Simulated scan of single mutants.
Amino acid sequence: MDMQLIAIGHIRSSIKDRESAPKMEHEKGAVRARIELDPAYAQGLDSMEPGAQLELFTWFHLSDRTPLMVHPRGATDKPMRGVFTTRSPNRPNPIGLHRVTLISIEAPATLIVEPLEAIDNTPVIDIKPMLKGSK
Rank of each mutant, 00 (worst) to 15 (best):
Glu55Trp: 03
Ile112Trp: 14
Pro79Ala: 01
Ser14Ala: 12
Leu37Ala: 12
Arg99Tyr: 10
Val100Cys: 11
Thr66Gln: 11
Ala21Phe: 14
Ile112Phe: 12
Met48Ala: 01
Ile35Ser: 00
Glu114Thr: 13
Ala52Leu: 04
Pro67Arg: 15
Gln43Ser: 09
Arg32Ser: 04
Pro115Ala: 15
Thr66Ile: 07
Arg32His: 00
Pro115Leu: 15
Pro67Gln: 15
Thr85Gly: 09
Gly44Met: 05
Gly74Ala: 07
Met69Glu: 15
Asn90Gly: 05
Leu5Ile: 13
Ile112Leu: 13
Gly29Phe: 13
Glu25Arg: 07
Leu97Pro: 10
Met48Val: 08
Arg99Ile: 09
Ala75Met: 11
Lys16Asp: 01
Asn93Lys: 13
Arg18Lys: 14
Val31Leu: 13
Leu54Tyr: 08
His98Thr: 01
Pro67Trp: 13
Arg12Ile: 03
Arg12Thr: 04
Leu56Gly: 02
Ser20His: 12
Thr85Lys: 13
Pro92Ala: 02
Ala40Tyr: 02
Pro92Cys: 04
Tyr41Ala: 12
Lys28Val: 11
Glu25Ala: 07
Val31Ser: 12
Ala30Met: 14
Val113Thr: 14
Ile8Pro: 11
Asp64Ser: 05
Gly96Trp: 14
Glu49Ser: 11
Thr58Ser: 12
Pro67Glu: 15
Tyr41Cys: 13
Ile103Gln: 14
Leu116Gln: 07
Pro50Ile: 03
Ser63Thr: 01
Arg65Val: 03
Met69His: 15
Arg81Tyr: 09
Ala30Tyr: 15
Thr86Gly: 01
Asn90His: 14
His98Met: 01
Arg32Leu: 04
Leu116Met: 10
Ser14Lys: 13
Thr58Cys: 10
Asn90Pro: 08
Arg81Lys: 13
Gly82Val: 10
Leu56Glu: 06
Ala7His: 09
Arg18Ile: 04
Val113Pro: 11
Pro72Ala: 02
Val70His: 02
His71Leu: 08
Ile6Ser: 15
Ser14Tyr: 07
Arg87Val: 05
Met48Asn: 02
Ser13Tyr: 06
Ile15Ala: 09
Pro50Trp: 00
Leu111Phe: 10
